[in-house]
Design a protein around this nucleic acid. Structure first.
Lengths: 205, 205
DNA sequence: TATAGTATGTTTATAATTTCACAAACGCGA
DNA sequence: TCGCGTTTGTGAAATTATAAACATACTATA
């Protein structure tokens, strides 16, 4: 239960555990086991136990894990106990879909600001948001102390947007643009590109 | 250059290499090196060379890689030389965004059919598509011989949709629903869930 | 209270992945 | 043509990740 130097790959699985636990909890279940979780996720029970052991002891021998308790602990470890404000850049089709997406609720995130650079979109209202000028990212995001952002702009604009976000103090970026962006050390980037995922699969067809 | 038993993790990086090469090509570049590619992708040059070595010899010592040639080879290896028809299930906000997304063009994929189960949406026209009844997935997808699908429906409907797709002969599924689905051996699933990606990052904040 | 059945947390072993290091080969300029 | 700087492809070494195995602890039941 070191809590220090936990491998990235382990941290990366914790959200999956949390998601599976949420489902079990919604089904009214109280207790589960590494075996059941593993089966649901396609991960070996031993691996789940080992992953969790990096952070402490959460189960009870002979019984398993209390779903509510383990969920709380994972939320604490992942620091998603409170909802964080996230800035969204890009009010195109994807941006709109993200604005209307209900899956963020209760998972630790809430879109708080929406930016776009298209003069036709600036000032428009989308859902509960007024679209702000991307030029103001640096000031507004910094003022609000927002440290996470979602980038949903074309690849050609992504690096500039990321640069502005970084200057605004953002330290974690989810990038939907199909391009690897440069960020200074200490800023994290995750990528979502459907083409990459699809191409990974065609190899096996 | 075995071509057999290439690790999954290696196959998973090939699309990234291809994407980076495409950008370089669009910039008018003719030649690159494992070092340059690695720098752009945040991957070590040695790893890139080793990954490629599973499939053959594509570079020239002292020079590097011909961008056009290596791109062609990667497309061949990944089997994305022709455009494949992809069925999209779910005509909500996300489905609409995917329909209008221009990033599939030239990358090996083309959305060919759109399904939804909402009677209000069935028959509607979205872009070039008439929305078809999800009930007909099994027959229509099978008839067209489509073997890839994108699932963009709520979590509660995802497993049923996946089951129908599998019965229709689909062997590769990109799942946007935030739930791990069960599929028979031989059917691949890739997941895209922004919450998972965001939660991976908050740990480090 | 004793016993059988479970499931954890951890240690040990196995497997996979990444990095290193270097010979071989190419291009270019003198 | 020779030599220098460069870059590949690859086997060996180092690192990291996964799986197996097991002692311990808990529940339930008789």
């Amino acid at each position: 239960m070191s809590m220090k130097n936990v491998p990235d790959i382990v941290v990366g699985r914790l959200p999956l555990y949390l998601r599976a636990l949420s489902f079990l909890g919604e089904e009214g279940r109280q207790v589960t086991s590494s075996q059941e979780l593993g089966q649901k996720l396609g991960i070996s029970p031993a691996q789940i136990r080992k992953d969790l052991s990096h952070f402490g002891e959460f189960g009870k021998q002979g019984t398993g894990y209390d779903i509510k308790y383990l969920s709380e602990q994972l939320r604490r470890i992942l620091k998603v106990t409170e909802e964080r404000e996230v800035a969204l850049v890009g009010a195109g089709d994807l941006g709109r879909a993200l604005i209307h997406y209900e899956g963020f609720a209760g998972k630790g995130f809430r879109i708080a600001l929406v930016f776009d650079s298209n003069p036709q979109k600036i000032g428009q209202t989308i859902g509960p948001f007024e679209v702000l000028d991307s030029e103001s990212i640096e000031t507004i995001v910094a003022d609000r102390g927002i440290e996470m952002a979602i980038v949903a702009v074309p690849a050609s604009a992504a690096q500039d947007v990321v640069d502005a976000l970084v200057r605004a103090g953002v330290r974690a970026i989810l990038n939907y643009a199909p391009i690897t962006v440069k960020v200074p050390a200490g800023v994290q980037v995750q990528y979502i590109d459907p083409v990459i995922h699809l191409q990974k699969m065609t190899y096996y067809l």
